[in-house]
Write a protein that binds this DNA or RNA. Structure first.
Lengths: 349, 349
DNA sequence: TAATTCGTCTTGAACGTTCAAACCCACGGA
DNA sequence: TCCGTGGGTTTGAACGTTCAAGACGAATTA
């Protein structure tokens, strides 16, 4: 029912032309102080709001940032993206953008969605998550000259400098976790990770290796790799503990695996139960991502600064969109932000 | 770089006028079969996509559905909204809509955001979550005649018929959970809930009362109310168990409280430990929402059909937007959908 | 004094689409 | 023969904004 207030209405009431009103809003420095105030008064009085669709027609800018929302894969880590999403929406709003969602089942269908969105809604830019080696989505966007930022490093070396990205330093996190355990007196510290080949997983493992090396501990035989499920984590933890009963602590690549490790540690298998001397919490466990699950079960975990990461994504994207630099120019010298995770200490370690 | 292809391009190539192309896309029945095919061929060939901004200028329709994304409050239940959001994005896309996100700290700032969004992006409709008694957001939207659907019943009676809504039948869920426990031989079944006054909480409690009544059990003294945090749940569970040691099972209003109850059940307080005769799992516990946490700790819980709920929201909203009925007309006889949760049985019960 | 520059403001056009109205032509009935 | 009808198509205008160009007066310069 709210009768639309257009720029022409404002102009009429303020006694100026449409263009002057437009100038007041977009290039205030070009208009006389007194006129500007008068126009702004009328704007407030009438409750005028610029119509994005009309502006988009003229400028080609939609003030929309598109991002994919995943189905929660394993369930536990799903919440990480969601927290990021909230931060993104918040930061984007502050910068004058809104977040548009889309879904896609795989990289190919996501690229198809790019075409769809760009043709219809014309989002100004994209935020890509879950990047991986030779990501076809990034190459497609680069190819088309569409502005985008990734949350996650480009893991293939060759692409390392071709687009801006924000990431959290996983190896710094696991190194800090390992040092925390070393400081607590542990020496035999194991690692539960994913199979080699995933950038994120390999990076997190590297931090554990580095910290152990710093303390003069040989990591050989102290790690296991498995897929990211609670049951797998439990099995891997059992296997590791069985093969080396001296292990007193575990750093895990994810909270899923860590929860599995907790199960193994707290209600150990029969073979191991005999010699159990610490019935309440025999093995220290540290997870990664500080998910709600970690909070609920008292799991010490590494927390990613998701809000900050999201804010940086918006900043980098806005720099491309608003700066003089084009997407292509910024691809020549893209900006990176690498954030440090923080250790949230709970009962498990 | 993809040079924009407009309706005029298609028209030129197909040898027809702009309007005919528009008709082919919007009112196909008015155009001759042969012409339609020819135009559609050209559309495919050139990869034409209707420009939403231009269409919006003319029709006032943006094909956008706006929804608020919350910060994950307590952390555990946050994922519920996120799963709903994914379903919504998916269903919306199928119906030709996209989902626009916004944040807000409270009802008042959310209403301010309504004004902002309606003035600038002109979303066609809103989906409101977390409705409560005398929700000012709903009244505001009703007042302005803005189409919307709520996920959650209007709990105040007087507003019950004024807008379409989708909800999950909480009392049916807790009743089913209670019956499940009764079938398993439990008779002293307690309830951990929220303080009276919240529509959702009272409803879920009612299901428990109903199921007990059906079995001839008096619920008096068997329930506790507390705020929604793990520690509170643990304390409330201890209190209940201490006061009535005969309690062998607990139905909880949320997974947060249920996880707390599990803590209480599995590592009971000292006073109670003495007489513990079932060391492994003395008390059956059932939660609500089937969050990732439930999955991780083996908690039996009630799962909301979120995907289906989201799909229904889109359907109801689309009916208002596309049907002949206006928002006001549909407010006269709004549609409701009440879905049943399902019990996901795990180790805890 | 005339020409130039500058600051401020206005005017017409354009973005890509759809609405409303007009147009054209074949057909059937009077 | 003429007119009315109706299916199929085209034409001009409009949505609300910003761009590009121009207009006007005052101040500055030649």
């Amino acid at each position: 029912m709210a009768d639309k207030v257009t720029i022409a209405d404002v102009a009429r009431v303020a006694g100026v032309s449409r263009q002057t009103v437009s100038n007041v809003l977009n290039t205030p420095d070009v208009v006389r102080e007194e006129t500007r105030r008068r126009v702004l008064d009328v704007v407030g009085e009438l409750g005028y709001r610029v119509n994005r669709a009309a502006r988009q027609m003229r400028t080609g800018r939609s003030q929309l940032i598109a991002i994919r929302i995943d189905p929660d894969r394993d369930g536990i880590n799903g919440s990480v993206l969601d927290r990021f999403l909230h931060g993104l929406t918040d930061s984007a709003a502050r910068a004058g953008y809104r977040v548009l969602l889309y879904t896609a089942d795989d990289d190919r269908s996501e690229v198809a969605t790019f075409e769809d969105l760009l043709g219809a809604y014309e989002p100004d830019g994209f935020v890509l998550t879950g990047t991986h080696h030779r990501d076809p989505r990034a190459s497609w966007l680069l190819d088309k000259g569409v502005p985008f930022v990734t949350f996650g490093r480009p893991w293939g070396e060759e692409a390392t400098t071709r687009h801006p990205w924000v990431d959290v330093d996983g190896s710094a996190g696991t190194a800090a976790a390992t040092r925390h355990l070393l400081d607590a007196g542990h020496t035999h510290i194991g690692f539960l990770g994913w199979p080699a080949g995933s950038g994120v997983g390999d990076d997190r493992r590297a931090g554990w290796v580095r910290a152990l090396a710093g303390a003069g501990v040989d990591p050989t035989g102290l790690s296991r790799a498995t897929s990211d499920a609670v049951a797998d984590g439990e099995a891997a933890a059992r296997d590791l503990i069985d093969s080396d009963p001296g292990v007193t602590a575990l750093v895990c690549v994810s909270d899923s695996l860590a929860v599995g490790a907790l199960h193994a540690a707290r209600s150990p298998g029969l073979a191991w139960r005999e010699e159990d001397t610490r019935p309440d919490l025999p093995i220290a466990v540290i997870g990664f991502d500080d998910t709600p699950v970690a909070k609920a079960v008292g799991l010490t975990s590494l927390s990613q600064p998701l809000k900050e990461a999201a804010a940086n994504c918006v900043t980098l994207l806005a720099r491309i969109l608003e700066g003089t630099e084009t997407a292509r120019a910024s691809a020549a010298s893209p900006a990176h932000v690498l954030l440090e995770p923080s250790l949230v200490i709970r009962q498990s370690a």
